[in-house]
Design a protein around this nucleic acid. Sequence first.
DNA 1: AGCTACGTGCTT
DNA 2: AAGCACGTAGCT
Length: 195
Amino acid sequence: RNDSQRLGKAGCPPEPSLQMANTNFLSTLSPEHCRPLAGECMNKLKCGAAEAEIMNLPERVGTFSAIPALGGISLPPGVIVMTALHSPAAASAAVTDSAFQIANLADCPQNHSSSSSSSSGGAGGANPAKKKRKRCGVCVPCKRLINCGVCSSCRNRKTGHQICKFRKCEELKKKPGTSLERTPVPSAEAFRWFF
DNA sequence: AGCTACGTGCTT
DNA sequence: AAGCACGTAGCT
């Protein structure tokens, strides 16, 4: 059983434009895709909450007053986006897709991995150089939820053991040590996710 | 135990 | 340099 099967109708057509179209925002609206498709840490409760919030959006999209964290303050969408992206407080009460995923980062094992992995390692980091890096979770590829199903990584999943090329984290593409923690997402990209 | 996907060596 | 194949870390 390959991923495209597990993801249901996931295999998207080879057209780049269509692939961009399925760049995960809409899919996030579906509860089904709320599940950890990529084996990442998606807290089910949060999923449900965010899902409910997202469901609220369409009817209030004019003012975005549906965002509880902002106390019903009406602001232009752009302002909300930027706020959500850069304010941890806003992000923790995520409503938007991007903010939702940022919020989930807080729950990612990588953020408390210092305790869990080092202890579970038995040797407990006796071999830190061997440690696998983890996806940043904020870059565009990381935000993709669906395997394209047509790239070499998808096609060769059995032997290649690689994540879909369109989902390969930008940070992981670089050599270890060449990055400054997390690469901030360009604001233009943020808008793209939001709308 | 089984799965996903990172790291790395080999091949093209 | 890019792609492929494999080992295996990390997670469920």
